[in-house]
């Protein structure tokens, strides 16, 4: 018996039990596997949506509406040269007329618009990450008060909310699975107390402390949970890597290609740790309560 095992285990206060032949380690493995996978899906969706949001929201579109096409072009040109000197502007370009024609075709048909309507000029501005679109837009407006500025961030706010909802759902899923596992640990401990009833009665009369007995169960359930959690987590990581490989192979996954950030991996790593800790505390408390009931 390992040196770091508690005395009660080293001196076999209770008979050793082949834990791998019970269902508990497998149930812990399944719990950790599902909780880790669920969190991975949640986190990578969040990561993907955040990346998408950043990609799309780091810019704005300027509309210069002017009845006089020449003045419209002149104003646009002024804005473009003003933007060209700004730091943090990755690109600023006028949306070409034929592209605007193409964008409007579904509504207006293939009439030559330029001849019929005076279209506003549209300038797409892409900003470097971290540049504050709002301030730049304000500056632009003070330079030319008659323009309209549409920040892309406003359009993508719901995407950020969706990400938050998914993250909460993934966490909730993991928490529920862990709670179910804790309930199974309670049943396992109670069954163990029943199986060892006679030996426990003898230990009681010989003056063994309740915390010694609780510690013995805690140690056993921690080891069992550790074996299950390690197995379940390793399997989960392998599956995540495999799925990432497959998604990468498709070359499409805008969402999942963002992958899992180091922070996300850290969060996933807490799943087996929490599972083992939970099994330990649950078993200890269950034994303490059971012994307190019959003293």
């Amino acid at each position: 018996m390992a040196r770091w095992a508690p005395r009660a285990e080293r001196y076999r206060y209770l008979p050793a039990e082949p834990v791998l032949r019970t269902s508990l380690p497998w149930l812990v493995a399944l719990t950790v596997l599902l909780a880790t996978l669920g969190m991975a899906v949640g986190l990578s969706l969040v990561g993907g949506l955040t990346a998408l949001g950043n990609q799309m929201s780091g810019g704005f579109t300027i509309q210069v509406a002017d009845g006089n096409p020449d003045r419209r072009d002149e104003r646009s040109q002024r804005l473009l040269s003003w933007l060209a000197d700004r730091e943090g502007v990755v690109s600023a370009a006028r949306v070409p007329g034929d592209e605007m024609q193409r964008l409007l075709e579904p509504w207006l048909g293939d009439t030559d618009l330029a001849g019929v309507l005076v279209m506003p000029a549209m300038i797409d501005v892409e900003l470097a990450p971290g540049v504050e679109a709002r301030r730049l837009a304000a500056e632009l407006r003070s330079a030319d008060p008659d323009i309209t500025v549409d920040s892309h961030a406003d359009w993508f706010a719901p995407v950020g909310q969706l990400g938050t909802v998914l993250a909460v759902l993934a966490m909730g899923f993991a928490v529920l699975l862990l709670a179910a596992m804790a309930a199974i640990v309670v049943l396992g401990v109670r069954a163990g107390l029943g199986r060892h009833r006679e030996a426990l009665g003898i230990l009681h009369v010989l003056g063994a402390e309740e915390r010694t007995i609780a510690g013995l169960f805690q140690y056993r359930f921690a080891l069992t949970a550790l074996a299950g959690a390690a197995g379940g987590f390793v399997l989960a990581v392998l599956l995540i890597l495999l799925i990432a490989e497959l998604v990468g192979g498709l070359g499409s996954g805008l969402l999942l290609s963002a992958g899992l950030s180091p922070l996300a991996w850290l969060l996933l790593g807490t799943v087996p740790v929490v599972a083992v800790f939970l099994a330990m505390m649950t078993s200890r408390l269950t034994v303490q309560r059971a012994l307190a009931e019959q003293r």
């Binding site: 206060y13 209770l14 030996a199 003898i202 230990l203 010989l206």
Partner: peptide, 19 residues
């Protein structure tokens, strides 16, 4: 009320180990 999973030595040793 001896413990069947322990041998004679271990049964007798138990109270000392508990203490």
């Amino acid at each position: 009320r001896l413990l069947d999973h322990l041998n004679a030595f271990e049964n007798v040793a138990l109270p000392l180990r508990i203490a």
